[in-house]
Amino acid sequence: MRITGDLSKCIGAGQCVMMAPELFTQDEDTGLVVVLVEEPSENQREAAWAAQMACPTRAVAVTETSTTDAAGS
């Protein structure tokens, strides 16, 4: 699984930080998304999906990177 944050879409609503504070923060100068963990562990997957679901501008994207990853290696 891989997490990306698209700065051209992000408006700094902070939903990702609320849903998954261990995976995201906001830049101190701009308030925009900073992905802290690009490849989340198995027990962080649910939080990553929740952050993607909550992002109002769909700037946060979560993608499965490989079958091994999807199986939870």
């Binding site: 902070g14 930080v17 830049d27």
Partner: peptide, 15 residues
């Protein structure tokens, strides 16, 4: 977006 981004950090979580 130009306006919103001027205010984003004022309402960021840590702030």
């Amino acid at each position: 977006g130009r306006h919103r981004k001027m205010l984003a950090r004022e309402f960021a979580h840590y702030k």
